[in-house]
Deep mutational scan, measured.
Amino acid sequence: LRQRHVACLARSERGLGFSIAGGKGSTPYRAGDAGIFVSRIAEGGAAHRAGTLQVGDRVLSINGVDVTEARHDHAVSLLTAASPTIALLLEREAGGP
């Protein structure tokens, strides 16, 4: 079961505080899956403080732009754009009992 949710992050002077992996033109985060995933969350960064991202979340869109088939460098450029806030649509595998 997959759950979707939106995370809104305000960029700090240190950026957004998370890294992505995967996407076309880069090493897959999961074998056989060209999706883009949250690969790291920086301690004390914007994403960590927001508490809405988890490592392993699939990134579906960035500020309304679909990145499900995107190249890695395109997703990075969307994240590093000048916008002071970033809205992410994420998909998470629902774990637990």
Rank of each mutant, 00 (worst) to 15 (best):
Leu9Tyr: 07
Gly95Pro: 13
His74Tyr: 15
Ala47Trp: 04
Val76His: 10
Thr80Glu: 14
Ala50Ile: 07
Val65Cys: 15
Lys24Ile: 12
Val65Ser: 09
Tyr29His: 07
Val65Leu: 07
Leu88Gln: 00
Glu91Ile: 03
Val6Ser: 08
Gly22Ile: 00
Ala81Lys: 13
Gly96Gln: 13
Arg58Met: 03
Thr52Glu: 12
Gly96Met: 10
Gly32Asn: 12
Tyr29Asn: 05
Leu79Asn: 02
Ile20Asn: 02
Glu69Arg: 11
Asp57His: 03
Gln54Asn: 11
Pro84Tyr: 06
His72Lys: 10
Arg4Thr: 10
Cys8Leu: 15
His72Arg: 10
Leu78Tyr: 06
Phe37Asn: 00
Leu9Lys: 02
Val6Tyr: 10
Pro84Leu: 04
Ala87Gln: 15
Gly17Ala: 04
Ser83Met: 08
Glu69Phe: 07
Ile36Glu: 05
Phe37Trp: 04
Phe37Gly: 00
Val6Glu: 12
Pro97Val: 12
Ala82His: 12
Gly15Pro: 08
Ile20Phe: 03
Ser26Lys: 07
Val6Phe: 12
Ala47Arg: 04
Ser61Ala: 14
Ala10Tyr: 10
His48Arg: 07
Gly51Leu: 04
Leu79Lys: 03
Asp73His: 07
Ile62Arg: 02
Leu89Ile: 12
Pro97Ile: 10
Ala34Met: 15
Ile62Ala: 02
Arg71His: 15
Lys24Val: 10
Glu69His: 15
Leu78Trp: 02
Gln54Glu: 12
Gly51Met: 07
Ser83Cys: 10
Arg49Asn: 12
Val59Ala: 01
Ser39Val: 04
Gly45Met: 08
Thr27Ser: 06
Leu60Phe: 02
Ile41Asn: 03
Glu91Val: 02
Ala70Phe: 07
Ser12Lys: 09
Thr85Met: 10
Gly45Tyr: 05
Leu79Tyr: 00
Ala50Tyr: 09
Thr52His: 07
Leu90Cys: 10
Arg2Tyr: 12
Ala50Met: 08
His5Asp: 05
Leu53Cys: 04
Leu79Asp: 03
His74Trp: 11
Ala50His: 08
His72Leu: 13
Gly64Phe: 03
Leu1Thr: 12
Gln54His: 09
Leu60Thr: 04
Leu1Ser: 13
Ala81Arg: 12
Tyr29Lys: 05
Val67Lys: 01
Tyr29Gly: 07
Glu91His: 04
His72Val: 08
Gly22Arg: 01
Ala81Gln: 15
Gly15Glu: 08
Asp57Thr: 02
Glu69Cys: 11
Gly32Gln: 12
Ala94Gln: 14
Ser12Cys: 15
Asp57Trp: 02
Gly64Val: 04
Ile36Pro: 02
Cys8Asp: 08
Ala70Cys: 12
Ala7Trp: 04
Gly44Leu: 05
Ala70Asn: 01
Glu13Gly: 13
Ala31Gln: 15
Asp66Cys: 06
Pro84Met: 06
Arg92Cys: 02
Val76Trp: 11
Gly45Glu: 12
Arg49Met: 15
Gly45Arg: 05
Gly45Gln: 08
Ile86Asp: 01
Arg4Gly: 05
Val76Gln: 12
Ala46Lys: 07
Arg2Phe: 12
Leu78Cys: 05
Ala47Tyr: 06
Leu90Val: 14
Leu90Trp: 01
Val38Cys: 05
Gly15Trp: 05
Leu60His: 01
Gly25Asp: 13
His48Asp: 13
Gly64Glu: 07
Leu78Glu: 04
Glu13Leu: 04
Cys8Ala: 09
Ser12Glu: 15
Leu88Phe: 03
Leu1Lys: 14
Thr80Phe: 09
Pro84His: 13
Ala47Gly: 08
Ala94Ile: 12
Val38His: 03
His72Ile: 14
Ala42Gly: 08
Ala94Cys: 14
Glu13Pro: 12
Glu13Lys: 11
Leu88Asn: 01
Gly15Asp: 09
Leu89Ser: 10
Ala10Gln: 15
Thr85Ile: 07
Thr85Phe: 10
Ser83Asn: 14
Gly64Leu: 01
Gly95Ile: 11
Ser26Tyr: 06
Arg14Met: 08
Gly64Thr: 04
Thr80Gly: 14
Thr68Tyr: 04
Arg4Trp: 04
Ala21Met: 15
Asp73Ala: 09
Pro84Gln: 13
Ala87Gly: 10
Arg58Pro: 01
Gly96His: 13
Asp73Asn: 09
Leu78Val: 06
Pro84Asp: 12
Glu43Arg: 10
Gly56Leu: 00
Asp73Gln: 08
Phe37Ala: 02
Ala10Trp: 07
Ala81Cys: 13
Gly23Arg: 00
Tyr29Ser: 05
Leu89His: 12
Leu16Asp: 03
Ala10Met: 10
Ile20Glu: 00
Asp66His: 02
Arg2Ser: 06
Val76Tyr: 10
Ile86Met: 09
Arg14Lys: 13
Gly45Ala: 07
Val55Trp: 04
Gly44Trp: 07
Ala21Gly: 10
Ala34Gly: 13
Glu93Ile: 08
His48Glu: 15
Ile41Pro: 01
Leu89Ala: 09
Arg14Asn: 11
Gly35Phe: 03
His74Phe: 14
Ala87Leu: 11
Pro28Ile: 02
Asp33Pro: 03
Gly17Ser: 08
Ala94Asn: 13
Leu78Ile: 07
